[in-house]
């Protein structure tokens, strides 16, 4: 399962790669990283239909996570393939307003920082099992 992580913090990559090293080694998950909303969109355009799940930060300079979510949902609104990737938001702002806005825009889930990786892993594994 291919997952795109969007965050302006570079260390996110190291963190994910270590957290999911077993799953990466076993080939269960494959991660790609983008450091801004714009970069994420470029990546999606270049790797259409590969990415199944997007984990995105909300607060990023330039295009915000919510803006990215809105654009993705807009682009993949039409039913014909490719199917829309699921977007999960991760943010330091755990307020209900952001959460509601994200869910209203079509976010699959909403997580707050610091990220509980055990919980995240469970969710991803569930998703992966559904995928198969």
């Amino acid at each position: 399962m291919k997952i795109l992580v969007v965050d302006d913090e570079a260390d996110v990559r190291t963190l994910f790669e270590q957290r999911f090293r077993r799953e990466i080694r076993s080939g269960l998950f494959s991660f790609s990283f983008a450091y801004s909303g714009e970069e994420a969109l470029d990546y999606l355009h270049a790797h259409a239909s590969e990415v199944v799940l997007i984990l995105s930060d909300i607060n990023m300079p330039g295009m915000s996570g919510l803006e990215l979510l809105r654009q993705i949902k807009q682009e993949y609104a039409a039913p014909p393939p490719p199917p829309s990737p699921q977007v999960m938001m991760i943010t330091a702002y755990g307020d209900t307003e952001s959460r509601e806005q994200a869910l209203q825009l079509g976010a699959f889930d909403f997580l707050t920082k610091p990220v509980d990786f055990a919980a995240l892993k469970d969710k991803l594994l569930t998703l992966a099992s559904h995928e198969n």
Binding site: E9, Q18, R19, A92, K113, P114
Partner: peptide
């Protein structure tokens, strides 16, 4: 929150 996220998760991992 951002650095704390890293501190907790890097120590955990």
């Amino acid at each position: 929150q951002n650095p704390l996220n890293f501190v907790t998760n890097f120590s955990d991992v």
